[in-house]
Design a protein around this nucleic acid. Sequence first.
RNA 1: CGGGGCGUAGCGCAGUCUGGUAGCGCGCUUGGUUCGGGACCAAGAAGUCGGAGGUUCGAAUCCUCUCGCCCCGACCA
Length: 594
Amino acid sequence: MRLSRAFMPTLKESPADAQVVSHVYLVRGGFIRRLAAGIYNFLPLGWRVVRKIEDIVRDELDRAGAQEVLMPAAVPAELWQESGRWDKYGPELLRFKDRKGADFCIGPTHEEVIVEMVRRDTSSYRDLPLNLYQIQSKFRDEMRPRAGLMRGREFIMKDAYSFDVSEETATTAYWTMYRAYERIFRRCGLDFRAVEADTGAIGGSRSHEFQVLADSGEDAIVACDHCDYAANVEQAEVAAPTAPGIAPGADGHAAATTRATVATPGQKTIEEVSAFLKVPATQLIKTLIYIADDQPVAALVRGDRGLNEIALKKAIGASALYLARDSEVVAATGVAPGFVGPVGLTIPVYADHELRGATAAVTGAGAADAHHVGVDLARDVTVTAFAPLRLAGPGDRCPRCAEGHFRGFKGIEVGHVFFLGTKYSAPMACTFIDEQGASHPMVMGCYGIGITRVAAAAIEQNHDGNGICWPMSIAPYQVEVIALQAGDAAVVAAATALYEGLTARGVEVLFDDRDERPGGKFKDADLIGVPLRIAVGARSLKDGKLELKWRRDDKPTLIDVDGAVAHVAELVAAEQQRLRALADAPSAAPGGAA
RNA sequence: CGGGGCGUAGCGCAGUCUGGUAGCGCGCUUGGUUCGGGACCAAGAAGUCGGAGGUUCGAAUCCUCUCGCCCCGACCA
């Protein structure tokens, strides 16, 4: 592509609404433009990246035995009513009526549709297993789209669905996809980790997230420094405490052991109370009021801990849970947030395991501007149940091995694999006949990859102060040739020959033939991030040399004009081969290498 | 959905408090000088000041209502 004819509008300044590097560079580099909140146009450069990622995904899924299909974006409500999700999914599901008044939605995921597709034409065990996937735009009406492609409302997703006759073969399908995902993300040049995850609204019993490690990630994950256990903090198991987390003298602090009420005017947060009473946060008990299936409950964790809402949900056995609004807190406890305490509560009280045997604790007094000190949980509080409620965090002992401790990471979730079982196939009567003539629901799995999010995640992980440093496998072009002096006939001739020679060999080349100053061309090249750059300039050309520079390197190297086409083509082939070979590294899945 | 903030030229912003009919930088057009890491000079084009209503002799500026967008917290690829 000649840059002089390309639609690649680059910007010197960052758009005001961009907060994360991937968003800034995608917009500045002319990859995407915003059309509405969380909805983007893909310009030629951005679309090329998307297609590169899609091609890798297709290649690996086909290799793993999956078949590509395409389902409609507009889905009739009846299907969603059949699975029960029409009423459960909430406002994130974009609904609309057609001209006849029939309800539809734009599919945010396609379990219902694929089940309908498969059940209609599959009835025998002989037809299974089956693994079907599509790459398609999805729409989720996020309450807060943000960070450009990282969390859009309309986004491109690959979703795959497996259908099996048994738990055993479905488990095999699950791990086959797990291995395919490892290969896909390795080939994309990403540093990622597969972690155990919550199954969330999609449901099911087993799940792994593929998290690209990046400080800008929205997900917190923990990984053992000794064994291979890694999990989203929402899902991470917490090792059983070996001693009460709160006891007199914890942290070397002498604390009251008899209960008393002290005035704490205006001191609401853990930090404020801790500072005001000169008591470490570990001596405090945090009392949180939740509404679980419309009933208020109290959840207790140590002051310095976070509460794991998923764990609380499991402990209660609730299907819906949210942090109570201020008015609901007052209604349930008689006091506003900040001074709520467990003593004397009449609602169910769930306490974190770590609090078992807690004494000398500080809690809210259940009255405005006051706290209790010297609370003995066993003596003063009616605990409905103890459960592992706190959030796992860095430094925690690993629950799976004796020696390890957790390290914390931030991740961007680019893929998710779920073992669904019969969650959709049973209610939707997606069944098969076995050898004995008996009918059974198919055992399903579903597997997603956020294609457009992969592009953003790749930038988060591969950039510097000047722009993007694409891994070659997903770069919009493999090589950028710059004619530094567009007015110099020799330079233009040499650059054009290189461009045409490489293109003829199948190398994807971006040719900066614009009549711009060299500085501007270098800046744009760094911004766009094509991995290999060849500068053709009068200075080197008079010695028969070209300047070759990898985007990640600081200094260029000189190569001979003679044989440059073959030389560069070989470099590209070698780099592509290197990235492709990464896929063959050992797998973390049971059964080893893919 | 709760809390905070912003809508003025394609982009980034000033002007709003204290009403007087719109300005700066980048980009764009033309001419000239430049030409190896975002040059300089000169001359231009470009804005119903998000929208509607109101107050006023007069509104970007004050009031009301709306729409859009961004950021911080509960959801997910």
